[in-house]
Design a protein around this nucleic acid. Sequence first.
RNA 1: GGGGGCGUAGCUCAGUUUGGUUAGAGCACUCGACUGUCACUCGAGAGGUCGCGGGUUCGAGCCCCGUCGCUCCCGCCA
Length: 586
Amino acid sequence: MRSHLGGALRRADVGAKVTLGGWVHRSRDLGGLVFLTLRDREGVLQVSFNPDWTAPEVITAAAAVGVESVVLIEGTVHERPADQYNPEMATGEVEVRATAIRVVGPAVTPAIPVAVGRDAKPPAEELRLRHRVLDLRRPELQFALILRHRLMQATRSYLSGLGYLELETPILTKPTPEGARDFLVPSRVHAGEFYALPQSPQIYKQLFMCCGFDRYFQLARCFRDEDLRADRQLEFTQIDIEASFIGREDIITMAEGLIRALWAEAGIAVETPFARMSYADAMERYGCDRPDLRYDLAIADLSATFAGSESGIIQSALAAGGRVRGIVIPGGGAWSRKQVDELEAIAKSAGAGGLVRLKSAGGQVEGPLAKFLSPEAQAALGLSDGDLLLAVAGADRISSPALDRVRQECAVRLGLVDPAVRRFLWVLDFPMFDQDPETGALAAVHHPFTSPNADDMAAHPGAPERWRALAYDCVLNGMELGGGSIRTSDPAVQSRMFGLLGIAETSEQERRFGFLLEGLRAGAPPHGGIAFGFDRIAMLLAGATSLRDVIAFPKTTAARALFEGAPSVVPVQDLEELHIRTVTGA
RNA sequence: GGGGGCGUAGCUCAGUUUGGUUAGAGCACUCGACUGUCACUCGAGAGGUCGCGGGUUCGAGCCCCGUCGCUCCCGCCA
C-alpha cells in the first residue's frame, strides 16, 4: 500500500514517485492551494496540492480532510525552492507534490491536540491518559517508545552475544517474599486457592541455574501491589540476569558492559569501570546507600569536637551512644534564618529532633551552641569564613536519613546538581540483615536468597546482624539503577537463613520455598545475578520525568488505567465461578 | 492511610484577593475569503452543569462543609 515512510524522505529521494500513508498533522488551505503536513512514525512531511500538478477534485478533497485523519497520498518528491526550506523539519528540504488523496480513516475532531505548538503546554495528564491513542501520536512519545524498543534490542543483542539465554518464567506463580504486597489471581479449578503475579522471577532464575542453563536473562514483567509514584508503577519491566560459576567481579564487569551498551544506544558514551564504595562508607559519608556523587558535601563525625560541650541535647545524645555528625556547606553562612529553618524542617520530617547550626563569619563561630564550644573546639570544626555547619546529634539511624535529605537540598540550593554529569557507582558489601530496633527481628536487606559473606559468618557466628552480604547496587546520580547478589547455593545455609528470618519450622520452609530448596539439593552451581529497572533506564535516556512517558498504557497514581478503564467490576457469575464473594461497600 | 498542589468552553488559561449586571482570551471547531504556506492570514459564528453534592447569603465561579478525579510527597515499596 505504501512505498515510503513520508517522515524519512530526504533530498536524495527527489524524483521518486511515492505512495504515502499517515495522519494529517496540520492543514493550511490558502484558497486554491492546499498544504497538508503528513505524519508517520518517522516524522512529518509537507504535501502540497497545487492546480499545476493536482486535479481540482483532489484539491477539494485535501481541503476538506480533518486533522488526525488517516490518508493515502500519491505524488512525487520535489526539492523545495532554496528559500522555502523549513529548518525545523527533518524533511524540510523536500515536499511531495500530490496527485491523489484517499481518506482511509477519517477522524473525529481530536479531544486533545496532537500537533502542539512549540511553547504550548501539553494537556493535563488525566486527559493525556484518557485519550492515550491521541497522546501516543505525539512525536515525543513516539520517540520515547521507539527508544524503549531499541534499548530492549540492545539488551538482547549484548546479552545474547555473551551467551546468555532469554528464558521465560511464569506470570501465574506462587507468592514469594520480596517484601511487597502480592497481586493474587483466584484459581477457578481450585476453590479458595490463589496464584500470585511475580514480584520478580527471582526463584525461577535460580532454578534455571540449577537446571544447568548457566547464563539467563529476561525482560521480565514484575508486579507489586504498592502505592504508585512518578517512578513507580504496579507493573514494570526488569532486565533480569543470572549466571553460574561466576563471582561478584564477573557480574559487575558484565553489568558495566550492559550499561555502556544501553547508554551508547542513546548516543551517550559511558566510561567504565564505575567508582565503588562500601555500604558502610556510603552511609557514613552521605547518609544513604545510593549517594549522588555529582557533589561532595560529605558528612563528618564531630562527636569528639562536641564531647566537651555542655549542651544538654548533645550530652544526652552522646550518652545514649549516639554521635554528632554534620555537613559543612561552603557559602551557606549567607543563608537567612528562614532558609536554614526550612532545612531544619526537612531534617525533622526525616526524623531528626532538630539541626545544630553554626556559621563562621569574620573569624568568629556563631550560633546557639557556639558558647558551649572552647576556642580549640571551634577551630577543630575547620570552618572557613562564610561556611555553615549543619549537624544532627543522635543515633546514626536518625542522623543518616536526616543529613541525607539536608545534603541533597543544599546541593540543589548551591546549584551543584548538574544534569549533564553522570556519576555511576557500585555500592558494595550491604549488610545481610536489617534489625528492628525494638523487636530485634531480622529482615533481609536484599532478599533471603542472598549469600552472606563467609568471613563474617565465621568471625561472628552468633551475631548475624553483623554479617555483610555479597550484594551490590548500581547507582547513578543518586538513583538506583539495579542491584543483585551472589546467591546462597548451599541448601543447608539457605535453610539457616530462613530460620534467622523467622521461618524456623522445616515444614513451613518446605511449604513456602520447597521448590527452591529442592533445586538447591539437586546440585546447585555457585551462582548470582543482577536486575536493572528497565523502565527507569528508558525514562532517563528518553529525558522523561515520569515512568508514564515511557510506558504505553500506564496506571495513574490512584492505580487506574484511564483509557481502558481498569480495574472494573465484573458480573457476579464470574465471581461465583472463581469462588469469590465481595464484601459490602467494596 | 496522611500532607501539599490543581480542577472555569474540545485544549491551555485569566477571572476567586474584597460575593454583585449577560463568566472572558488564545488555540481548536463551523461558515466565508485568500495561489507557496509551514503555529498561514483575514472576517463572521457556534461553543459553559465554573469537577460533583450540600450549606451560608437578597445574591456564590468566588465564602463554608463534604466528596470525586489528576498530580507531587510521606507511609508503603528495592
